[in-house]
Design a protein around this nucleic acid. Sequence first.
DNA 1: AACATGAATACAAACATTTGCGCAAATTTT
DNA 2: AAAATTTGCGCAAATGTTTGTATTCATGTT
Lengths: 337, 337
Amino acid sequence: MMQKSQVTIKDIAQELGIAISTVSRALQNHPRIGLKTKEQVFEVAKRLNYVPNPAAILLRKNKTYTVGVVFPHLQEEFFSQAITGIEDVISAKGYNVVISQSRDKLERENRAIKSFISSRVDGVIASISAETTQYYSFKELENYGIPLVFFDRVPKDVAVNKVRGNIVEAAFEATSFLAKKGITKIAILNGPSNLEISNERLEGYWKALKSLSLPIFQQYIKSTDLTKEDTFKKMEELMTLPEQPQAVLCFNDYVALFAMQSCRQKGIIPNTDIHFVSFANLPITAYLDNPPMASVEQFAYKMGEQAALLLLKIIEAKQDKKLIPEEIIIGTELVVH
Amino acid sequence: MMQKSQVTIKDIAQELGIAISTVSRALQNHPRIGLKTKEQVFEVAKRLNYVPNPAAILLRKNKTYTVGVVFPHLQEEFFSQAITGIEDVISAKGYNVVISQSRDKLERENRAIKSFISSRVDGVIASISAETTQYYSFKELENYGIPLVFFDRVPKDVAVNKVRGNIVEAAFEATSFLAKKGITKIAILNGPSNLEISNERLEGYWKALKSLSLPIFQQYIKSTDLTKEDTFKKMEELMTLPEQPQAVLCFNDYVALFAMQSCRQKGIIPNTDIHFVSFANLPITAYLDNPPMASVEQFAYKMGEQAALLLLKIIEAKQDKKLIPEEIIIGTELVVH
DNA sequence: AACATGAATACAAACATTTGCGCAAATTTT
DNA sequence: AAAATTTGCGCAAATGTTTGTATTCATGTT
């Protein structure tokens, strides 16, 4: 149980009879230190099992080599895949990731950001909660000079860094896909309207119908708060319309699955009586006998990677003047099941 | 863009014309500091927007207020629910959580642990990878005096802290459940045998058959590496036996879903021709028209909470002598769908 | 009046590391 | 051979906080 009690560069210096500063420089491969000295230092460091004390480094350099991620959920595979992408990039560069879940609550989101500030992370990647309409906490990050990259659920604001899918185009494509099947009565079961990605879906849907000269019915446009209950309710509203839609474009796979369940309860058979197309293309759908007809693959892993790369770029360029905000758009792909 | 440049207790001291140490003690509500002074200090701290520098605190106290979690995956809801439980407890106590995924690779697991050591986390919660058979990295944690709690996938070793479900009993119950339905030919599609939780499932299965005086067939006992491919393969092996099993006890819901898919491809209808019972009771099954017949609810969130509580207890008692390792067993519940 | 008591605060060291500056010795340039 | 430069290394300050000990000052006791 030999409690290795904190080997420091001081110990190494003592062992070799040289100055602390020399050890420090040797370990950093400073050019002014002789080769022989360096070798000795490394040898002793290894032998004593030296591990640099991150606190001391942080104190001097004022850098934590840590980035914070705040996402609505982890259980949504879209987000956990994204995290994997982020983690891979971040940790390859020697940084660490700390993750917080907002659970789609503004209050939790704010708390997470506060904690990021007080732990002095070097940067933040965020996907806003379903409740977020103002960005006070995020502004606070800026006040402290902490770089921020929004992910997927991004604000409308142009003056921020963001990584997102080209949702408008994807929604256009998905809607057109249905239309090409000869389906004309297409509804949309969208997400909360404060999320820009909801509006983008609507826009793509709208443009597609427009371009195909199909009529647009206000009653075919519904928003849900993403819960099962609300989705059931909105789906029922759609099914009790005088003109039942033949297909529904859903905010994401979960919404689609809820909606399909709701149908079944009413004796309406999904993929026969009514068709579903959705976003995310989650692996979960691979387990289903009866998945949505098609789903938009958003390449969450790749999106995560890109977000991490962008953030690191900003962090490491930070000494220079402010960079102009960047927007990275990841292509999507409609996958037919 | 007022770059708040690091307000320190020194600034507060200067502003009030008092000593740095007085400010430090005032902020900690030290009894030796006068009430009036404390009030002034708090007022100025608030006004200057003082945020304590975690690096300096860490350097002095040698404590990071951070715990590391290494799990095989995040996308498995069992684990992400557990993380949520952990996070809730940990952050309520003012600690932070850093999460790493091993992706069931030993090498990644080792890397994560190494990184935890070099960032000097106060404690670690781990669920071992499917590849882990030796515990070198974990021993290393002990060498550095970092408390460790194993979670769900725990080693056989008795001398470690663990939080786990009472799997043997659950497997017993699940098997009995099938038997009570009049099913006698029950197979098991288990996980990798280096995971203790696989052996426990087998033990429960075995005991149940034994206690009901049902025959045990070696050919009915299969292990998979949890991948889709291998599960398909093993399931086919079961289906091509001269005596086809009537039911399969699966390692978890994913394995069950893979197995059910495999059946469907062969024209065998799950829940009609053959029954499935599994572990985890994931929310994902709520989306299915045809879920496994029953699944063992393991209360992942609660397990996470318990693991976090245990870890914090060890961390905060650390100054005292070594505590004896503890084992917390969480009750399970067979949920019939 | 001398003195102990206790409260309130100040001083300074310590934590582990980085870094600007300085100083020799060695090497090169003039 | 003198001057300039380079090389290799040490000294000490600095980072922000905590904490053991010292100091001051007022109060109360003899």
